[in-house]
Design a protein around this nucleic acid. Structure first.
Length: 264
DNA sequence: CTGGGGAGGGGGCCC
DNA sequence: GGGGCCCCCTCCCCA
């Protein structure tokens, strides 16, 4: 069951990361690199680069400001949308069951396209998602794009999220259609690189190594979280007791379990 | 209750 | 404009 985080976060929670500061050697980590332990170990940024103290004030501040996201359960979403979205079934059948290969050959193209700009947008959507079917109502917000002078807003049929570009919407729709399917276990993902990461769980490949303890991880984010365990100063601080945690989730659990209020 | 690993999703940026 | 890559974040599970 895929987890869903479809609630758009507030602007303050989506900061532009300082790549130059933290990831000046990031290309070294790319999945395409041949697995070379020594190379990867050397590629890990030095502790002074990864030391969170450099950005501690901001991170703690951000953690305090971070909104309490309210994840919408996948099941609840589907329970709301599926009964009405007949096309979803055919769409899923079309795109999510064909392995990690590119999406299945396009179904018969809808004949209702014209060469207008709005229709070309629809055509693009159909090209990318043949299972969308012939009816524009599949993307209810597209009707808003009929007038190029009006606000361009594209709404997802399945969850009604709004996007300012068709590309963003198309990418989002993949999270519903899950066109990338693991050939080993059949699990479906929205994006190829997510599938790549998942495949590592089958192959056991762990390209991301910790320079401090020789542990290896299949996912860069998990390595980053792990690196926090080597730091004395954690990124996330409880504003009540000033205790710091290596992860936001730990801070949340700490607060939810009832912070005693006293420093520890 | 806390700490940490594993896995996965969303959106933004860059090419 | 689209795809790939990246970061941030979250949840689940276990010790």
């Amino acid at each position: 069951m895929p987890r869903s985080f479809l609630v758009r976060k507030s602007a303050c929670s989506r900061r532009r990361p300082n790549y130059s500061e933290l990831h000046d050697s990031s290309p070294e980590f790319t999945f395409q690199q041949p697995y070379d332990q020594a190379h990867l170990l050397a590629a890990i940024p030095p502790p002074e680069v990864l030391n969170p103290t450099a950005s501690l004030p901001t991170l703690i501040w951000d953690s305090l400001l971070a909104p309490q996201a309210q994840p919408i359960g996948w099941a609840s979403l589907l329970s709301q949308e599926i009964p009405k979205a007949v096309e979803l079934t055919s769409l899923s059948d079309e795109d999510s069951g064909k392995g990690s290969q590119p999406p299945s050959p396009p179904s018969p193209a809808p004949s209702s396209f014209s060469s207008t700009s709005a229709s070309s947008l629809e055509a693009e959507a159909y090209a990318a998602f043949p299972g969308l079917g012939p009816l524009p109502k599949q993307l209810v917000g597209l009707s808003g794009a009929k007038d190029p002078q009006s606000r361009k807003a594209f709404n997802c049929k399945y969850c009604n999220k709004e996007y300012i570009s068709l590309g963003a919407l198309k990418m989002h729709i993949r999270s519903h259609t899950l066109p990338c399917v693991c050939g080993t276990c059949g699990k479906a993902f929205s994006r190829p690189w997510l599938l790549q990461g998942h495949v590592r769980t089958h192959t056991g490949e762990k390209p991301f190594s910790c320079s401090h303890c020789s542990r290896a991880f299949a996912d860069r984010s998990n390595l980053r979280a792990h690196l926090q365990t080597h730091s004395d100063v954690k990124k996330y601080q409880c504003k009540t007791c000033s205790r710091t945690f290596s992860r936001m989730s730990l801070l949340h659990k700490h607060q939810e379990s009832g912070c005693s209020g006293g420093p520890r």
